[in-house]
């Protein structure tokens, strides 16, 4: 496979096939954990770790797994890495662990991870699977940071915890609460569609 192909495996997850904005996968953590840019980033990186590791293992043992039990096998592989993330994060970054809460064990049922294992890692070699996991993971992280950033700026007038002094007093609280997540994501998806359409024409 040529180098341009490798590059496209890595970069397709950023915008063209972005898991959250274009394919609408992994919506629960995308909406639930993005009350601030930092939380979004933490969730994104945790998911990326699971994605890359499970892609590696799945592509290594793809020929050993009988076709009929492949989905349960993938789920066990993914759940193993999720448990590793869960325990390490609990031990080393307790504040983030507390903020993300239930959504860490729920990486298991994130459709992005299982989707990549089934659609990509089970058909490709290890190197390509790593690139795919990295690309998709970075795209997912990017999406969560953007959504978290927008919500943090509008909701509390700060970004990554730094006060921007754009609002007199507090920001628009609704963007930190549940409804703001849906509304902000709706507008971001509309903008992404617009950008992707422009790229396709050019």
């Amino acid at each position: 496979m040529s180098n341009t192909n490798k590059l496209s495996i890595l970069t397709k997850g950023f915008l063209k096939e972005n898991a959250v904005f274009v394919m609408l996968l992994g919506m629960c953590p995308a909406l639930g954990t993005t009350t601030s840019a930092v939380n979004g980033m933490g969730m994104g990186l945790a998911t990326m770790f699971v994605l890359v590791m499970s892609n590696i293992v799945v592509s290594l043992i793809k020929n050993l797994i009988p076709d009929k039990v492949r989905i349960p096998s993938y789920i066990v592989i993914i759940a193993t890495f999720v448990t590793i993330v869960d325990l390490s994060m609990h031990a080393y970054i307790p504040s983030l662990y507390k903020a993300l809460g239930l959504f860490i064990p729920l990486i298991v049922v994130n459709c992005v991870v299982l989707g990549r294992a089934e659609a990509f890692a089970s058909k490709n070699n290890v190197l390509d699977s790593i690139l795919d996991g990295l690309g998709m993971g970075l795209g997912f992280t990017l999406a969560l940071v953007i959504l978290g950033g927008v919500r943090e700026i509008l909701g509390s007038g700060s970004i990554f915890g730094i006060d921007l002094h754009i609002f007199p007093g507090d920001g628009m609280l609704v963007f930190v609460l549940a409804p703001g997540a849906f509304i902000a994501l709706g507008y971001i998806i509309a903008i992404t569609n617009k950008i992707n359409k422009k790229f396709q024409k050019a």
Partner: peptide, 21 residues
Amino acid sequence: EGMKGAPVALIVAGILALAFM
């Protein structure tokens, strides 16, 4: 045009969430 499909559905969901608040 640009809001058709997922974007407008999400915004409607947002307003529904607002009502539930």
